[in-house]
Protein backbone atom coordinates (compact mmCIF):
# COMPACT_ATOMS: atom_id res chain seq x y z
CA UNK A 1 0.00 0.00 0.00
CA UNK A 2 1.51 3.29 -1.07
CA UNK A 3 0.86 6.17 1.24
CA UNK A 4 1.18 9.10 -1.13
CA UNK A 5 -1.09 12.07 -1.01
CA UNK A 6 -3.25 11.18 -4.02
CA UNK A 7 -6.83 10.72 -2.93
CA UNK A 8 -8.41 7.33 -3.22
CA UNK A 9 -11.95 6.64 -4.23
CA UNK A 10 -13.99 3.66 -3.09
CA UNK A 11 -15.59 1.59 -5.85
CA UNK A 12 -18.46 0.19 -3.85
CA UNK A 13 -19.66 -2.14 -6.58
CA UNK A 14 -16.15 -3.50 -6.95
CA UNK A 15 -16.01 -4.10 -3.22
CA UNK A 16 -19.32 -5.92 -3.37
CA UNK A 17 -18.03 -8.12 -6.18
CA UNK A 18 -14.82 -8.99 -4.35
CA UNK A 19 -16.68 -9.59 -1.12
CA UNK A 20 -18.96 -11.93 -3.03
CA UNK A 21 -16.08 -13.85 -4.58
CA UNK A 22 -13.97 -14.07 -1.43
CA UNK A 23 -16.98 -14.71 0.76
CA UNK A 24 -18.32 -17.50 -1.39
CA UNK A 25 -14.87 -19.12 -1.57
CA UNK A 26 -14.66 -19.18 2.23
CA UNK A 27 -18.23 -20.38 2.65
CA UNK A 28 -17.71 -23.07 0.03
CA UNK A 29 -14.53 -24.34 1.64
CA UNK A 30 -16.18 -24.48 5.07
CA UNK A 31 -19.19 -26.29 3.64
CA UNK A 32 -17.01 -28.79 1.79
CA UNK A 33 -14.90 -29.47 4.88
CA UNK A 34 -18.05 -29.90 6.93
CA UNK A 35 -19.17 -32.60 4.49
CA UNK A 36 -15.91 -34.49 4.74
CA UNK A 37 -12.21 -33.81 4.87
CA UNK A 38 -11.44 -36.86 2.75
CA UNK A 39 -9.12 -36.33 -0.19
CA UNK A 40 -11.90 -37.57 -2.46
CA UNK A 41 -13.84 -34.49 -1.45
CA UNK A 42 -11.40 -31.61 -1.12
CA UNK A 43 -8.48 -32.50 -3.39
CA UNK A 44 -9.30 -29.67 -5.77
CA UNK A 45 -11.79 -27.58 -3.84
CA UNK A 46 -9.50 -26.78 -0.89
CA UNK A 47 -6.45 -25.52 -2.81
CA UNK A 48 -8.62 -23.61 -5.28
CA UNK A 49 -10.65 -21.82 -2.66
CA UNK A 50 -7.51 -20.90 -0.74
CA UNK A 51 -6.07 -19.61 -4.01
CA UNK A 52 -9.18 -17.52 -4.67
CA UNK A 53 -9.06 -16.18 -1.12
CA UNK A 54 -5.41 -15.07 -1.39
CA UNK A 55 -5.80 -13.67 -4.89
CA UNK A 56 -8.95 -11.84 -3.83
CA UNK A 57 -7.10 -10.15 -0.98
CA UNK A 58 -4.29 -9.15 -3.35
CA UNK A 59 -6.75 -7.60 -5.77
CA UNK A 60 -8.67 -5.86 -2.99
CA UNK A 61 -6.58 -2.70 -3.19
CA UNK A 62 -7.77 -2.24 -6.76
CA UNK A 63 -11.21 -1.42 -5.43
CA UNK A 64 -9.70 1.79 -4.12
CA UNK A 65 -8.32 3.44 -7.26
CA UNK A 66 -6.70 6.84 -7.16
CA UNK A 67 -9.11 9.55 -8.22
CA UNK A 68 -8.29 10.92 -11.61
CA UNK A 69 -10.23 14.06 -10.81
CA UNK A 70 -13.46 13.25 -12.58
CA UNK A 71 -15.94 16.05 -12.25
CA UNK A 72 -19.36 15.93 -10.73
CA UNK A 73 -21.08 16.10 -14.10
CA UNK A 74 -19.80 12.77 -15.46
CA UNK A 75 -20.53 11.16 -12.17
CA UNK A 76 -24.12 12.39 -12.28
CA UNK A 77 -24.67 11.00 -15.77
CA UNK A 78 -23.08 7.77 -14.69
CA UNK A 79 -25.49 7.60 -11.81
CA UNK A 80 -28.44 8.07 -14.16
CA UNK A 81 -27.16 5.23 -16.32
CA UNK A 82 -26.72 3.00 -13.30
CA UNK A 83 -30.27 3.65 -12.20
CA UNK A 84 -31.57 2.56 -15.60
CA UNK A 85 -29.48 -0.62 -15.50
CA UNK A 86 -30.72 -1.28 -11.97
CA UNK A 87 -34.33 -0.82 -12.98
CA UNK A 88 -33.94 -3.15 -15.96
CA UNK A 89 -32.20 -5.77 -13.81
CA UNK A 90 -34.98 -5.49 -11.25
CA UNK A 91 -37.62 -5.89 -13.94
CA UNK A 92 -35.75 -8.94 -15.24
CA UNK A 93 -35.70 -10.45 -11.75
CA UNK A 94 -39.41 -9.84 -11.20
CA UNK A 95 -40.11 -11.36 -14.63
CA UNK A 96 -38.20 -14.54 -13.76
CA UNK A 97 -39.85 -14.94 -10.37
CA UNK A 98 -43.31 -14.43 -11.86
CA UNK A 99 -42.90 -16.95 -14.69
CA UNK A 100 -44.61 -19.82 -12.96
CA UNK A 101 -47.23 -17.78 -11.14
CA UNK A 102 -48.24 -15.46 -13.99
CA UNK A 103 -47.50 -18.00 -16.69
CA UNK A 104 -44.91 -17.53 -19.42
CA UNK A 105 -47.34 -15.74 -21.71
CA UNK A 106 -48.47 -13.03 -19.30
CA UNK A 107 -45.06 -12.57 -17.67
CA UNK A 108 -43.34 -12.20 -21.04
CA UNK A 109 -45.93 -9.73 -22.27
CA UNK A 110 -45.50 -7.54 -19.19
CA UNK A 111 -41.71 -7.81 -19.14
CA UNK A 112 -41.26 -6.98 -22.81
CA UNK A 113 -43.63 -4.05 -22.52
CA UNK A 114 -41.93 -2.78 -19.37
CA UNK A 115 -38.48 -3.42 -20.82
CA UNK A 116 -39.32 -1.45 -23.95
CA UNK A 117 -40.42 1.46 -21.81
CA UNK A 118 -37.31 1.32 -19.64
CA UNK A 119 -35.13 1.16 -22.74
CA UNK A 120 -36.61 4.37 -24.05
CA UNK A 121 -39.59 3.51 -26.23
CA UNK A 122 -42.42 5.92 -25.44
CA UNK A 123 -45.09 5.25 -28.12
CA UNK A 124 -47.74 3.25 -26.32
CA UNK A 125 -49.12 1.56 -29.44
CA UNK A 126 -45.63 0.39 -30.46
CA UNK A 127 -45.05 -1.05 -27.01
CA UNK A 128 -48.41 -2.81 -26.96
CA UNK A 129 -48.20 -4.16 -30.48
CA UNK A 130 -44.61 -5.34 -30.24
CA UNK A 131 -45.03 -6.96 -26.83
CA UNK A 132 -48.11 -8.79 -28.03
CA UNK A 133 -46.60 -10.04 -31.28
CA UNK A 134 -43.31 -10.98 -29.65
CA UNK A 135 -45.03 -12.93 -26.90
CA UNK A 136 -47.19 -14.79 -29.38
CA UNK A 137 -44.29 -15.76 -31.62
CA UNK A 138 -41.81 -16.70 -28.93
CA UNK A 139 -44.29 -18.58 -26.78
CA UNK A 140 -45.68 -20.61 -29.64
CA UNK A 141 -42.22 -21.11 -31.11
CA UNK A 142 -40.76 -22.52 -27.89
CA UNK A 143 -43.87 -24.56 -27.21
CA UNK A 144 -43.39 -26.15 -30.58
CA UNK A 145 -39.66 -26.71 -30.22
CA UNK A 146 -39.41 -27.98 -26.67
CA UNK A 147 -40.57 -31.52 -25.91
CA UNK A 148 -42.48 -30.57 -22.78
CA UNK A 149 -45.11 -27.95 -21.86
CA UNK A 150 -44.46 -24.49 -20.40
CA UNK A 151 -46.80 -23.11 -17.72
CA UNK A 152 -49.25 -20.69 -19.35
CA UNK A 153 -52.19 -18.61 -18.22
CA UNK A 154 -53.95 -17.50 -21.37
CA UNK A 155 -52.35 -19.20 -24.38
Amino acid sequence: MDRDNARRRVEWGHLVLLALIIGSAIAYLLDARATSTATNNIALVQPTSVFVFILGLLVLSQAFPKTDGDDAETRASERAELIRVGLLAAAFGVFILSLETLGFDLATLLFVAGGLYLCGERRVWVIALYALLFTLIVVSGYQWLVPFPFPMTVL
Binding site: G103, W144, P149, P151, M152, T153, L155
Partner: peptide
Protein backbone atom coordinates in the same frame (compact mmCIF):
# COMPACT_ATOMS: atom_id res chain seq x y z
CA UNK B 1 -55.96 -26.96 -20.14
CA UNK B 2 -52.83 -25.31 -21.44
CA UNK B 3 -51.31 -28.69 -22.01
CA UNK B 4 -54.16 -29.92 -24.12
CA UNK B 5 -53.05 -27.64 -26.89
CA UNK B 6 -49.84 -29.46 -27.44
CA UNK B 7 -50.11 -32.29 -29.85
CA UNK B 8 -47.26 -34.68 -29.28
CA UNK B 9 -46.56 -35.09 -32.93
CA UNK B 10 -46.22 -31.45 -33.82
CA UNK B 11 -42.81 -32.10 -35.22
CA UNK B 12 -44.34 -34.49 -37.66
CA UNK B 13 -46.88 -32.08 -39.04
CA UNK B 14 -44.25 -29.42 -39.46
CA UNK B 15 -42.22 -31.61 -41.68
Amino acid sequence: SNMTRRGVLKGATAL
